[in-house]
Every structure is written in structure tokens, then in C-alpha cells.
Amino acid sequence: MSFSFNGQPVAAHAGETLAAALMAHGVEGVSLTRDGEPRQPLCNMGTCFDCAVTVDGRSLVRSCLTPVEDGMEVHSWQNH
């Protein structure tokens, strides 16, 4: 299966979390700071929010807790 991340296709396995798939794909900025700096998952357990993304328009979704679904449209979430 696959999903898109910031417009680019990313391949994934069923059951994988978005965070794991993005890490395996070598994505740098899973989320972005207010200054635009990249962040990657820090805790992988739902506490830090460094893995936050927007999924199909829903913001602040923690990618480490979210299983991939085919065709998801995922974007880096940016803190304001």
C-alpha cells in the first residue's frame, strides 16, 4: 500500500504506523517547528508531538499512533 507525504508517494506495509513508514523512507521533517526546522519522532509513544502530521485535513495527528491506510494524504504539521 502507499500514501502521500507532502505530495510524494511513500510505500508502506499494512500495520505499519505512519511514523515508522516515514522513518523507513528517510523523511526529514515529519513535523516542522514554527521556524520551519524539521523534526522527527522523538518518543514513539504519543507524548512528544514531534511526529505530528495532518492526515486528510485532520491536524495534530500523531503519526506514531496512526496506522497507515492506503491512499492517505499526509502533510507535515507545523506549529504556529
Binding site: Q40, P41, N44, M45
Partner: peptide
């Protein structure tokens, strides 16, 4: 990026 916690 690249800094992670042991649990992660």
C-alpha cells in the same frame, strides 16, 4: 532529527 529516546 536523529535524536531519539531509548523507548522510541
Amino acid at each position: 532529527p536523529g535524536v531519539m529516546m531509548a523507548g522510541a
